[in-house]
Design a protein around this nucleic acid. Structure first.
Lengths: 347, 347
DNA sequence: TTGAAAGCGCTAACAG
DNA sequence: CTGTTAGCGCTTTCAA
């Protein structure tokens, strides 16, 4: 029964058996094997059984690449997911949600991290597209994404997440960054704080800018306005944020802020690293593990990465399945979680 | 110059241009285009320039699937990474390291989460293999992995991480779980603790069992032996761990443990959730963000997910590049980070 | 219900 | 240096 070694095209070690090997062993034509593999077509039960046996015996597995080459419709059942950094808990939670949705649609996920570098993003996207992904979920880096227009026109579906892609009209899943930041800062103002520091990442990152605008707008309402001295942009790491917090804490009393608004989880954690979180009232953007167990527990504006991922995936698969309605912008709501850190008195 | 719409096989919207479209536009044969695309071959500069122009004009991108079909060597430049749960910080850090290594080799990474379900693992691996991945980095679920032997024989390289795969002889990157756990528990014994509780995940997960054995062996040395009453297995979530910790804290004084050893980060965090971490001396396995900022700061046995990922990737790419030495088992060392939580007195 | 021929997009092998 | 022919593994289309 086993293929004798003299067989011209037997499945030797190191070679994957092909549909022809199966056909030969089962004594049918390759076409019949194809029909059995893909189901749906009518094949006599006996024949199908023979083929199944041969498939099992050889351990045959279809070559999806070859299959897709000839098929109409031509779906690879693979999508690409490009995030800023997969090691960041926010993005890994998002990835998990995307992966789960993908599995439900029998899809696989190629993953990449862009590090907010447009060059790196282009590289990865290009590699994704060379592999004929059916769609892309993308956290766009700063910069123009016009280069994607060609891909989209050729049929690759794209959904953006966390940020809009400049120069592209596609489905986009966002968070209500600006009003959420505004509300958070208003809480601090309501506690009586007048000097509220802002610690943020690079301004050219869209959600960061939105949050900063929210911070400003909270002040605008109150008639007060923030002292540029206590506004720090471009904090790209925990240590950078820690240093900035220490600087603010070291300011002379009259210019020293009594409260802090931090524009993302990394920065909030940096402030905690510095130990200065006990010196200020504090509200941060993004939830992180154990925020509730610190002293004091940290109040935060929480996004829901799971929901963001699931929503983006839903959009993408709708597109892949033929949805041709105009692109949508979905804005998901954040949740303010009050834990105490924003109630430290202004004195 | 631009393809008139009457052209039989022009690159219409929704269709990717092929090598033939480029050839036609450049006025050369497809083969010449192929040579230009892949480089290395000798093509007259002028011709190459014409081709390049046509490529740019059409926005041509090679179809890697078709390319690989015919190529010898037949590498897809894609690997699969299967972890327990990509949302878990340990695995997402590992994934990041793998992805970075992959990029250096011009590889892309397909990702999947198994949730420690062997069935799900087989599904995902099968999907990976249908897409002809060159290699697999795998956190094996509990159970036999003999089903992979066939794939391996056909040339797919496999590296296991975090756990050995039962029934498979492949490169494996592990941690010194047992001695590390032993040392951690010995520290507690040295503090004078005699009743040390153990909180662990399912025993059939290899690293968990190793850590439990380390816990036992620390006792064996001291002549004492742990009370089964304070040993809890099967804790699969933070809430489950929190409940177990609360139970131990509620025991009558003479059976109540004075110290706890927790077998992974989730369980340690569960104990913290319960608020009972102030009632026990505590050492946990796995580092997690902000462990040093809690009250008291938590002492832990730290793995290095980055190094684990990088090491695994190095092995995999060595294999892909032709290394045929016998499979290796690499055991990376953990680091004990003392922060205070293990020094709570036994009384 | 089954098979034969052709071709998906690309490249190996051989010619010129 | 360039083109032609054949064929990767599979599926479409058409014929039996």
């Amino acid at each position: 029964m086993s293929t004798p070694s003299g067989d011209g095209a037997g499945a030797g070690a190191g070679t994957r058996p092909t549909i022809r090997d199966v056909a030969r062993l089962a004594g049918v034509s390759p076409m019949t094997v194809s029909r059995v593999i893909n189901g749906g077509q009518s094949v006599q039960p006996q024949t199908a059984a023979k083929v199944d046996r041969a498939i099992r015996e050889l351990g045959y597995q279809r070559n999806d690449a070859a299959s897709n080459l000839r098929k109409r419709g031509n779906l690879t059942l693979t999508i690409g997911l490009l995030v800023d950094d997969i090691a960041n808990p926010f993005f890994s939670a998002l990835a998990r949600a995307v992966e789960d949705s993908a599995r439900l649609h029998a899809y696989l996920v190629l993953i990449g991290s862009s590090q907010n570098s447009l060059a790196r993003e282009r590289e990865v996207i290009s590699a994704f597209c060379s592999r004929q992904v059916d769609g892309l979920i993308l956290v766009p880096s700063t910069g123009s994404h016009r280069f994607l227009a060609a891909q989209i026109e050729r049929g690759t579906k794209v959904v953006c997440v966390d940020r809009p892609a400049a120069g592209l009209s596609v489905d986009t899943v966002l968070t209500d960054n600006r009003p959420a930041a505004r509300q958070a800062v208003i809480r601090l103002l309501e506690q009586g704080h007048r000097r509220i520091g802002y610690l943020g990442d690079d301004q050219d990152i869209w959600p960061v800018m939105e949050r900063y605008q929210g911070y400003l707008s909270a002040f605008a309402d109150s008639g007060a306005s923030p002292d540029p001295l206590v506004v720090r942009h471009g904090l790209r790491s925990r240590p950078a944020a820690a240093a900035a917090a220490a600087e603010l804490a070291a300011l002379p009393v009259q210019s020293r802020p009594t409260a802090l608004f931090t524009a993302n989880d990394l920065i909030t954690m940096g402030v905690i690293d510095s130990g200065m979180h006990t010196e200020f009232a504090l509200v941060g953007f993004d939830e992180f593990a154990l925020a509730d167990k610190l002293t004091p527990p940290i109040s935060i504006v929480a996004q829901d990465p799971d929901l963001i991922g699931t929503t983006a995936a839903a959009r993408l698969f709708a597109r892949i399945n033929g949805d041709v309605t105009p692109p949508r912008e979905l804005i998901l709501r954040t949740r303010f979680i009050s834990r105490g850190s924003e109630e430290i008195s202004p004195h």
